[in-house]
Design a protein around this nucleic acid. Structure first.
Lengths: 144, 144
DNA sequence: GTAAGGTCTCTAGTAGCTATAGCTTCAAGA
DNA sequence: TCTTGAAGCTATAGCTACTAGAGACCTTAC
């Protein structure tokens, strides 16, 4: 059994964040010790690590709730799971596409910023110029 | 001269966000029309487009402030901007890698759903496993 | 000249945490 | 066994980066 601090370290999540997740019911209420301290098992660690990674990937907590429900209710109808999975897959694909474009842009920036002075460094120039964009982000929905 | 709405459209930034950036002094106070409406020129558009792109790349506003100040002092070394860009590139690459893993798992689930079973959902497994991480995010600073 | 729609300021709300205060519990050493 | 210092508890407030109203004013097209 892990205390909240150990759990946080194991999952890479800060203690107050864990309590916050419990408050918004993303994590179930854990057991308590005789002295009222939270005690967690392996499943809580898995769940928290999942949340952490999904957050890093930019998923809002609502989407994470959806994803968690896929494993929380393994017997739910395939149709429901399918809808959630497809919706998230669409989001994931869009996110990958946009990140690829951003990666290319960053690499170009770094290549152009070859150890000179800002006078020849085009970092800012590149980042202010829409024409360098691989895709038109002005029409894309709010992704972050 | 552009009104705030035109500027927002041109840069892909919402009107209240522009006013917010002015309030926190990321954008200088613009000229005003006789009727007190904001009027912007090309330099404001460049600056705003830069901010927009940098935000998309995951730079926090403080880092953007730094980058903008670098461009105001063009004799400084480019190294600082380069370091920030490289750090962001690393983060972007790691995100792409993990999104690819999630995408594969979602696709697997959807394929299985088509066959009528959802019993062994491994979405959490895929994203809860630290070993899939490209880098040890547990020590990295806040990425977002 | 009037109607629609853009813009103004101001305040308040949002997501997702993060920090602080003031207290209690736990574990390890003397 | 006592103590002491870290870790935990609740509750509340604050943070970043916006976003959404309300209610009034400006601009433009017919």
């Amino acid at each position: 059994m892990l205390t909240i601090g150990k759990l946080g370290k194991a999952a890479g999540v800060k203690v107050p964040t864990i309590r916050y997740y419990e408050q918004i019911e993303l994590l179930p209420e854990p057991e308590r010790s005789a002295g009222n301290q939270r005690l967690y098992g392996q499943s809580a660690l898995d769940r928290l690590a999942f949340i952490r990674h999904a957050r890093e990937l930019g998923f809002p907590l609502d989407a994470i709730r959806d994803l968690l429900s896929l494993s929380d209710e393994p017997d739910q109808s395939c149709a429901a799971a399918d809808v959630i999975a497809k919706k998230q897959l669409t989001a994931v694909k869009a996110r990958i596409a946009r990140l690829m474009a951003l990666k290319a842009e960053l690499e170009r920036m770094i290549a152009q910023c070859a150890q000179g002075t800002v006078a020849d460094c085009r970092v800012i120039e590149v980042l202010s110029d829409h024409s360098h964009c691989a895709q038109d982000h002005r029409t894309s929905g709010a992704a972050e």
